[in-house]
Design a protein around this nucleic acid. Structure first.
Lengths: 346, 346
DNA sequence: TTGAAAGCGCTACCAA
DNA sequence: TTGGTAGCGCTTTCAA
């Protein structure tokens, strides 16, 4: 621990004693009024409130926390994505979180490992006694065992874990993918390829499952040569799309597991001199704003990102308050957004 | 204030007394060791450290803050941009902040007005006694007078204010624009249009100034019909670009005050059946990753975003520590990134 | 170099 | 419905 701290503007703020004196009551009564807890005669309440406003009194949260051993801050482990899409995803997610956390005057404390082993990081933050719960977006990471063992409630966003202990909230990736592919099938497509996402994480796995299930249940064969191994990022999708366009019989449609990959695919398709949707229909996933900026606008599967953030925050608070027990597994519905990148095949 | 708090895992953590007992010293000595302040015999220091690790002791920050009246948390007012570019900008900015704040084990506390007047918001957060300083990204907002009057140090990022009291850090928008336009001039362009950003904020104003200065100092006329009024967003740039392409004598080059607007402009140019850079050279600003994804790749002016975040955080900490006085005005250099969207004119 | 002890501002118990 | 008061866990004098 270091010394680089600032002396606080000492004596500047009135304390609970000042308010009590001003209102001619005890500090206990002031505390009751401030916390809106316990019974106080109306006249006294008014006096206290007046004194509070006259003195511009604000409670000292450190003192309150120390005395009460209560917490209401939410820790947030921020993933710091490198790409625009990830940044956008996280900002959208945070909007949902914001809308439930800030009106309650709860605090969001940003947490991030600082050149330290993850175990140490978790040990450190879990010991911050004023953090009542943790929200995490882990990407492909597992839930750290130290966190799992702790008695702090936490919820993992945008992931699905089988482990019944882990609270998590995600979107219906499997169904979203299923519906997208089914849409292509209904348009008459028979040779439908896919570029799937990273299979290290649930969304990647589930979107591929959805693709396969849609084909299967509609009596279409699952062909390995039509399944390209992606990782959610543009570059690889570009390369894989080029390969998909080298097979003997071209696919007439491609389900691409992220809009970012769709961008790469579009590039590849154009370089091959083909046109969307005339030669190839494509369909993405995420509904990133970029979809509407391309020619043609990309049909995609919308995820309710900020809704997921909102729900996660609500559940987090309920967990902290003990109004909700663990083992939460939520899945939010996706929605197919039809634009101009798919065409019917006769 | 509400009651929705959680009883803390009471008694779970060892306190400074436990450590003192274990190490056979007083709590004062433990405190000295923990804070690495004051003199302690080596033998005792070792004992204390061993006790700390044996008991897995972590100091209670609330108690520490209450006793010391010291703070080391940094409040952060997050703009929550709506678009991908803004999200990306902010994430990049935060990477710089992260790299200096977290290794010091300082905390970043997210702040945001909750359906409340801004004055009330600032009054509320400025009274949080554990927040030692504030970093803000204000967009087009002014610095709130309540914040200005407070004695909490703060720094505004990505903006430049004349007011000598306001600490701020920004990039050399004027010079960046100047260099971009000068580059076009050197390529032989004479009819250079611009789509400028919002003139409500400094970057908008300065990039326009840079454009004009470059023309002027190179003996080129400043023509109003070549100056289009933008707002940094795509849509308006699309519309303005269409108009710019309707004048009698087409501009051969356009300096566009943001890459996001460049996207809109590209769309407009293509719709008119023109090609970049054959018919029109364009140059953007920001160096958003999308620049390299377009055909052709867009020449642009790179801003050192995360560098700005890093510097802002460093200055913030120095301000909090009293190692730096107020009145900070920093400007970071931009850099012209030449790609494929400009061509020489003979 | 050390320890004792007086707070920091608040909560929550208990008695009135 | 109230007030008195004992802590909460730590820092920081002050004296030894």
């Amino acid at each position: 621990m270091m010394r680089n701290k600032l002396k606080h503007r000492k004596g500047k703020f009135p304390s609970i004693d000042d308010v009590a004196r001003e209102a001619h009551v005890s500090i206990a009564t002031v505390s009751r009024v401030i916390n809106n807890f316990g019974s106080v005669k109306d006249a006294n309440r008014v006096n206290v409130l007046e004194a509070v406003s006259k003195l511009n009194y604000k409670p000292n949260i450190s003192a309150s926390r120390l005395a009460s051993n209560k917490v209401n801050s939410i820790g947030l482990i921020w993933p710091f994505y490198d790409d625009m899409f990830g940044s956008y995803f996280f900002t959208e997610l945070m909007k949902g979180v914001r809308d439930v956390v800030f009106p309650e005057h709860r605090e969001l404390i940003l947490l991030y490992p600082a050149n330290e082993p993850l175990d140490e990081f978790y040990r450190r933050i879990l010991n911050k006694t004023y953090i009542g719960g943790l929200m995490l977006e882990l990407g492909a990471q597992k839930v750290n065992p130290i966190l799992k063992k702790s008695d702090i409630p936490y919820i993992v966003v945008n992931a699905r874990y089988e482990d019944p202990e882990i609270n998590c909230i995600s979107v219906s990736n499997r169904r979203g993918a299923y519906e997208a592919v089914e849409y292509l099938i209904k348009l008459g497509h028979k040779k439908i390829a896919t570029i799937h996402g990273s299979l290290n994480i649930q969304p990647g796995i589930e979107r591929l499952e959805g693709y396969k299930a849609a084909l299967k249940e509609n009596g279409l064969p699952i062909k390995e040569e039509l399944i390209a191994d992606g990782n959610f990022y543009r570059k690889i999708a570009y390369e894989k799309m080029l390969k998909l366009l080298e097979v003997d019989e071209l696919p007439t449609a491609v389900f691409i597991a992220s809009d970012e990959m769709a961008l790469g695919a579009v590039k590849a398709i154009r370089e091959k001199g083909l046109e969307i949707p005339r030669d190839v229909s494509i369909i993405g996933f995420d509904d990133n704003p970029i979809c509407t900026e391309l020619f043609p606008q990309i049909t995609t599967v919308r995820q309710p990102i900020s809704e997921m953030g909102r729900l996660a925050a609500e559940l987090m608070i309920k967990l902290m308050e003990g109004k909700e027990k663990g083992g939460i597994k939520k899945s939010l519905d996706t929605e197919l957004v039809i634009r101009d990148s798919c065409r019917p095949i006769s």
